[in-house]
Amino acid sequence: MGVLRIKPPSPDFVERVKLHLEAFSTGLKEAIKPSRMTIQYPRELRKRPKGFRGMLVLDITKCISCFQCAFVCPANAIHMKKAPNGKYYPCVDYAKCIFCHYCEDTCTKGAWKSTNFMDVAFKSVDEMFLTTEKLVNGPDVPEEEREDEYVVEYEVKGKKLELKKEYSPEKLVEIEDSH
């Protein structure tokens, strides 16, 4: 482990002129051939990688009402509600949820699953509380309001950053298969 002692440059007049010109030419180069990396949301969506921590889906058949997820949740976002069959099932309050997915890691039965989706807007605070029924079906996205055409992924090829574009999937919300 060495020590790197840096010397700040103190350019004289000639060097300063050169540096001015260098800054100008760098700007000009980008103006002519920009290396853009904007993703034009909502027309383009960013590709969510495998294991993305998005909205949650509950597989109610696996849940054994052990309350562990509600216990571990750091934001107190999980409420256990009594279902008609007498068992307690989790509900998620998205006003509080911080998408940490401790609940997913907690569940011994693998009842929680993640989706690749988290661009959701609710019309009111009350709607942000998702009851068990809503959690089972996954996030509700009105298909007719979709604007996205592409899914974009950053990819570095050689020395260039490429925006790899694919056509949007038919279904916006994809539930991850458990691993």
Partner: peptide
């Protein structure tokens, strides 16, 4: 990604870090 950051930071050096106005 590290390669890209390293390469682009050369341009950044020209336009900002060693810009005489910044100095």
């Amino acid at each position: 990604a590290m390669t890209y950051i390293q390469q682009k930071s050369k341009d950044f050096e020209k336009i900002f870090i060693k810009n005489p106005v910044t100095i």
